[in-house]
Design a protein around this nucleic acid. Structure first.
Lengths: 228, 228
DNA sequence: CGAATATTTGAGGGCTATCAAACTGGGTGG
DNA sequence: CCACCCAGTTTGATAGCCCTCAAATATTCG
């Protein structure tokens, strides 16, 4: 059910603001954009499944996409929650063949889809595009590493505290707040927790001054939260 | 205590067999090799710490190196166990600045060390070197993703079974064996387990036909192991 | 306003970390 | 050759953490 669109000005602007376009010159931006198509996706729609031939990589313009791996027994583990401006599956450019994880739209999403073969063909002429992809992959590797380390060292309340501290805006001295960009079950997936465990983590953090009202979260003492 | 060496022929051959040199032509190989120095490291020696300025990336020629992240409280979580031919910290080329994890020699190791700035300067002239690094990073990202997914889905015996099946050589119909390349405590770190948990996982797997004698492991029924 | 969807709460149990102690095997020096 | 030592490994006991299932409660959206 993907509706293809001729990119509107707004979408062109969104695309240019994607991380993978940072530091590119005009000619490179145009070349890379020429490999792309804008498309939309309904919530819960599967973009691709693990094991399918990998022809495209994607930049997310609006909405949320989760990347996940499948078990033999059909269990799913989320690898990453993508937000607007994120690029995913770009590792196909050099580790090609098939998608190594699935991708599911978790919202009404707008995506730019890049043809891997066309982009690969640009690399010789535009080495800075290669550098941009290298940077994107490096950052993904580092964030996956951080996720793995956090999984291995942190309890559920610590993971939540870590997320809150990384995403909140500090207001008064030592107080802060934030609004979650997506529902709590997506946050739970991102942190590798069952939704119930996330809920219990929030209630544990109440004693550290965290107040939750739907997606709005207030932190009364940033320093207390850091000590969790 | 790093002893610098002029690369012997053996070390030159080892270096060329490192994954990052696969698919490179002679000129590219020579250019990349020109950025490198061979060095040795004693067991337990720290190659670099998380947060240090990142000047070099490495290819391991002999021995084992563990990559790990540190907590505020001093806990360590292992990210990856590097084996000969593995390259690590190459993400510095585009996500530079500081090392984002520590590296410790776990053996008498021999390494090739590449100057990040020099390698970066080669990318414009030799785009295939960029492609080689892109491939290396892609594979690391995929293996880290797999590790994360396994951590989130598999129990200790399942992780061990998975490792055994991935590394054993099948002999008679359905029987197989392998020798661990490193001590069990390194395997435990690699799998994100306490050494005691690894030991207990092996004893659980006895009932699936796994026999352990030191580093030698025999599997009497590969298919039974797959069902764990 | 009501149905569907999220989230919270409770109870129970499985899994693994931790601590402590026994054990193994290979290498050393007597 | 043997007793000893040491690092690595195994075993036992305990406790904490989080998943699962089930049910109650909020929220969201049409």
């Amino acid at each position: 059910m993907n509706r293809m669109l001729t990119p509107s000005n707004r979408e062109r602007a969104l695309l240019s603001s994607a991380g993978i376009f940072a530091d590119l010159e005009n000619a490179e931006t145009e070349a890379l954009r020429g490999c792309s198509t804008v498309m939309t996706c309904a919530p819960h729609e599967i973009l691709f499944q693990e094991g399918e031939p990998g022809v495209y990589f994607y930049s997310l313009l609006e909405g949320y996409v989760r990347l996940f791996r499948l078990n033999e027994r059909g269990q799913e583990a989320d690898i990453r929650i993508c937000e607007p401006r994120d690029t995913f599956a770009e590792c196909l450019i050099e580790a090609g063949g098939t998608y190594r994880y699935g991708a599911q739209s978790m919202d009404n999403t707008v995506l730019a889809r890049f043809h891997v073969g066309k982009v690969r063909a640009l690399l010789a002429e535009y080495p800075r595009i290669g550098a941009a992809i290298l940077r994107s992959l490096s950052l993904h590797l580092l964030s996956t590493i951080e996720c793995l380390a956090n999984d291995r060292m942190q309890t559920a309340p610590q993971r939540v505290a870590h997320y809150l501290l990384a995403h909140c805006v500090e207001e008064e001295p030592a107080t802060a707040s934030l609004q979650l960009p997506f529902p709590k079950n997506l946050l739970a997936r991102k942190l590798g927790l069952a939704p119930e465990a996330l809920s219990r983590a929030f209630s544990t953090l109440k004693s550290a001054g965290v107040t939750v009202h739907g997606r709005l979260i207030a932190i009364s003492d940033v320093n207390a939260l850091r000590k969790i």
